[in-house]
């Protein structure tokens, strides 16, 4: 058992544990915090895969930005929550079926893909090469994604201003 395997087990247990806590927590704040914990553990797994840039961006955007925004929004809700409602039995079974189906499809794709075959050790791509690939080979998808985000941003502002009036 080398250090890499130990770290991988630790991070994956943390990630899954955070997700289980997220599902079982009663208070919304605990949910948000365990979600942040899962995001952070995923960053650790990225780091083990030698994707430094992706790991750091995961911490910056998900564990830092999105979690803080969620906690910020939740903070002003009432701390005492009512217990989980029991009226959605059918809904829960439907969700289970859909989620299992999705899981099977994803697993099928992963196992069919040649990526899964054990390869020689890949060294981490530098930030420069990520930048070059993103802005030279995939410039149009990148710009489209940024326009989409910009539209969402402007839309949020428009909605917020409408509420003020």
């Amino acid at each position: 058992m080398n250090a890499e395997f130990f770290a991988f087990s630790l991070f994956s247990v943390f990630a899954i544990g955070g997700a289980v806590f997220f599902l079982n927590a009663i208070r919304v704040m605990h949910m948000a915090l365990s979600l942040a914990f899962t995001f952070f553990s995923l960053a650790g797994i990225y780091l083990l895969l030698q994707a430094e840039f992706l790991a750091v961006v995961q911490v910056l955007v998900y564990a830092g930005g999105i979690s803080i925004l969620m906690i910020f929004g939740i903070m002003l809700t009432k701390p005492e929550e009512s217990g989980a409602s029991k009226s959605f039995q059918l809904h829960q079974w439907l969700s289970l079926i859909v989620v299992t189906g999705f899981f099977l499809v994803i697993m099928l794709i992963i196992y069919q893909n040649p990526i899964f075959a054990p390869t020689v050790k890949v060294y981490s791509p530098s930030v420069q090469s990520i930048g070059t690939t993103l802005f030279k080979d995939y410039a149009i998808p990148f710009e489209l994604a940024s326009i989409l985000l910009l539209v969402a941003l402007i839309g949020a502002i428009v909605l917020a201003r409408k509420e003020q009036k």
Binding site: V59, L60, G65
Partner: peptide, 14 residues
């Protein structure tokens, strides 16, 4: 690490 500056900014936001 290659992304040291970004690492500082990311971790300090926690």
């Amino acid at each position: 690490i290659g992304v040291g500056l970004l690492y500082y900014m990311a971790i300090s936001s926690i």
